[in-house]
Amino acid sequence: MNEKGKSLTLFTFLVYLFLIAPLLIITVTAFGQSEFLKFPPDSFSIRWFLNVFEVEMFMRTFLISLEVACIATFIALLVGIPAAYVISRYRFRGRKILESFFLSPVLIPQIVFGFSLFNYLVIKLRLPVFTGLLIGHTIFIIPYIIRVISASLANFDYEIEEAAVIFGANRIKTFFMIVLPNISSGVVAGFILAFINSFNNVPISVFLTGPGVSTLPIQMMSYVEYYFDPTIAALSVLLMGMTTVLMFIIERSLGLSYFTSK
């Protein structure tokens, strides 16, 4: 402890105040009484929380976001797990390049990706809006899946796979009976990370939403443009609650050290 001086402790405290305070401010504001966002509020109520459920657009887009995030994550898992398995398990020429290719969607500016998909899927191919939205989300969360699954496969001892084979399991049985159960925490964490990123996405959705099909973050952005009441703050608090639960699951499954060891 003697390496940490008093000034360093104070500095760290201030930096963390910077990280935490805005979210605390939102939370306190959400419990305000007045029509306007005010911190600290003059009086407290939960009317804006109730109001969240009154705004029909929020409820509808929440369900759409949920649906898109779930389906996109599911498809990304179906596509991503086998790919992550092969690039972690086997050594072959071009493996590194392929890995970079699978992770490349994070390198593309999302707004550019959204615009390009919009141009291609909606304008050129005339796909339904929802399909386009789903495809966009699936592609951009594939890297999250591949990265998390690869990380948990890195700790997987392939000798136990050989053990299963020699005791009579074929390759497919081995995968489902031995490999999958041992990376289940990675699958859960990958699901949640992908889910959160899909659920929170704006830049891709902003191009791929259309008449009748919008997501919650998009709806929140347009709400903020016109109204400045604590409804959004209340909704934010509810979303933070969701984040808390999901983070808890990640902590349980993958361990938060995943975030510091990229």
Binding site: E162, I166, I178
Partner: peptide, 30 residues
Amino acid sequence: IPVHKKQFGFVFQNYALFPHMSVFDNVAFG
């Protein structure tokens, strides 16, 4: 002949026990 069709027993250097299964299930696997 594919590995899984042979009736061979193999003991691995690092044991390669199935970490998610009990001792009973490990032994019963084959």
